[in-house]
Design a protein around this nucleic acid. Sequence first.
DNA 1: CGATGTACCATCACAACACATGGAACAAGT
DNA 2: ACTTGTTCCATGTGTTGTGATGGTACATCG
Lengths: 126, 126
Amino acid sequence: MEIIIDIDDPTPLFSQLIEQIKNAVIAGKLNPGDALPSIRQLANDLELNSKTIAKAYRLLERDAVIQAKGYRGTFVHPDAQKNCTIDLNEWVNEQLNKTIASFRDAGVTDSEIRIAFSNAMNNQKN
Amino acid sequence: MEIIIDIDDPTPLFSQLIEQIKNAVIAGKLNPGDALPSIRQLANDLELNSKTIAKAYRLLERDAVIQAKGYRGTFVHPDAQKNCTIDLNEWVNEQLNKTIASFRDAGVTDSEIRIAFSNAMNNQKN
DNA sequence: CGATGTACCATCACAACACATGGAACAAGT
DNA sequence: ACTTGTTCCATGTGTTGTGATGGTACATCG
């Protein structure tokens, strides 16, 4: 399990991390139950800030690819392989594309769409 | 028909214009067929840039509140009063609220929603 | 020629946000 | 004591989009 982070890649670092871990799971290099390096450990190895690693781990756990078990460390989720192929963002993209297309058909300006979106995001806080 | 623009008001100038014209229509101070000041004329009176006025007029015409008749000038739309009460943005807000709420329920991060939204807006260009 | 709305070129300040960084602290279990 | 993940404080940089400005030009009609 080697992870390579390319600083020159415009892809956000935490995204690169997520990608590589998912790929390792799909390729069978990481199997359910396998222990992952601790956040601080990995941050040290990759010379990244621990917050960046933590962000990647948080998202991976949300997608049920890994499991954080507190003081015991972080492990590959039992259903990791299956959940790796589920792309939550892809679904979000589809939904948004449909919604935005309907707005444009109605003649709504991009500016107006953006403002309404911003309002929706802020008003739903909570 | 007097229009007052408040520079200190955080509300965008073109929005203030739209609001006041719509209100004038609703209040019956502007009736269908009435002529509106020309873009350059109004820009001069309010000491605003003509583009700012043009933007307001463009949106008002899209909502069928006014009608631009080229060299003849701009007039209040026959169905202005009815179309003033139709708030396109309200419908947009409802749609977005529902969509965003479903994303949040699925555990999607605000950041991810914003990025997906940004992508959807840019990728659908044409 | 003058006026209309409209289209294109451009610039600037301002705000919101993403990404990444750093430090400090916490509860939980070994 | 030590390490685990997590959460709070914070800063800085870069990008993106808005609002508003200015200039120039066009076709159309009087």
